[in-house]
Design a protein around this nucleic acid. Sequence first.
DNA 1: TTGACTGTATCGATCGTTTGGTACAGATGG
DNA 2: CCATCTGTACCAAACGATCGATACAGTCAA
Lengths: 200, 200
Amino acid sequence: MRNRQQDKKTQETGATDEGSARYREILNAAAVLFAERGYHGTSVRDIGERVGLLGGSLYHHIKSKEALFVKLHNSALQAAGDEIEAAIAGLSSPWARLEAASVKLAELQLDPASITMPLMNDFRQLTPELQAQLIGTRDKFEAIFDRLVGELNLPPDIDRKIYRICLLTLLNSLWTWYRPGTLTPTEIGHEVMKIFLPRS
Amino acid sequence: MRNRQQDKKTQETGATDEGSARYREILNAAAVLFAERGYHGTSVRDIGERVGLLGGSLYHHIKSKEALFVKLHNSALQAAGDEIEAAIAGLSSPWARLEAASVKLAELQLDPASITMPLMNDFRQLTPELQAQLIGTRDKFEAIFDRLVGELNLPPDIDRKIYRICLLTLLNSLWTWYRPGTLTPTEIGHEVMKIFLPRS
DNA sequence: TTGACTGTATCGATCGTTTGGTACAGATGG
DNA sequence: CCATCTGTACCAAACGATCGATACAGTCAA
């Protein structure tokens, strides 16, 4: 028995280097892989390889694969929420505000440089305990669009909840089919909004 | 003289009991689990448990987990395509045809009794080789909606390709958020179509 | 010298898959 | 009628590979 005393365990808090460069590297690498291959399809060794570390060495920076995913998910949603709020800050027309928010979200989802939002939809592949850690952040994010849709003067026969879900689902799924080429992410965002804007 | 002729070669394709009751049981169980937890999140032992078999015993009926998924995917898409074609057969108005097709697809996606279409979107978690086996069937299915959208008299500023992708993405994602309650699958289908139909 | 960082090596669990064997149903042949 | 054979369907056990995670020793800058 080596450890009569439980030794210091410097990182028992679970919080590792919140802001180190290495940690952000890992966060970015994990974001790409989770987005490309899903949670279960990505191993910690895959992530390590992308940042030049062995799988086991990652655990000096992260607490667990699950914690990494939660951190990634929550901080991405938080950042996206902030950017969207900023994008609509100066606008007053309800339709203009919704369009600006949608376009901004499209840009965020399709920007390869940003930490994208892996598995915004579809976290069915995650364990229920993991899901529980994510719904809070997600609800808060969706509340932004809930508010924006609530301000709209929509035709009375349109269900606002379904309208909002559909818009968010589409924007969050853009990256599954978008390929850079003829249209920019911004243009894609406007194109999608054409479907949701009032016609006539 | 057992086989002077290579006899009828009933299952040379690697396909096992194409139509046995057990095989359909396995297909159904796998459909549910793949949809709930994704491909990697579902183990063959999980599937076996759902039909009262050990994981290894499944291999008397299936060739591999991948083959099971491919079979599931292709037959579901084939059946859905047939049902949608039947639903629009008697209609002539382009908008009525698209709406009928969409509602039918919504019903198929949300009917818990049918072999649903697991991971219609999002097969990024699959290996490229597996994906290659699916895109053919998928393209053929999407061609139905491509044709229907092509018949529409859409506003000229709307990109038809994006319009079609968005509609299909939404319909295929319904099950990720739909919960039985106030609205039936049919009503959900119509509700979604309200967004895509010409307003005013 | 210390503490942050990384490699080496390994753990137990689980993965998809294979193997050997068994129980049983129906044909076959003497 | 009985013995034998064949094929189906399954279980029990195990395979090698890989999973997330841990322990520990070495490296190196401060």
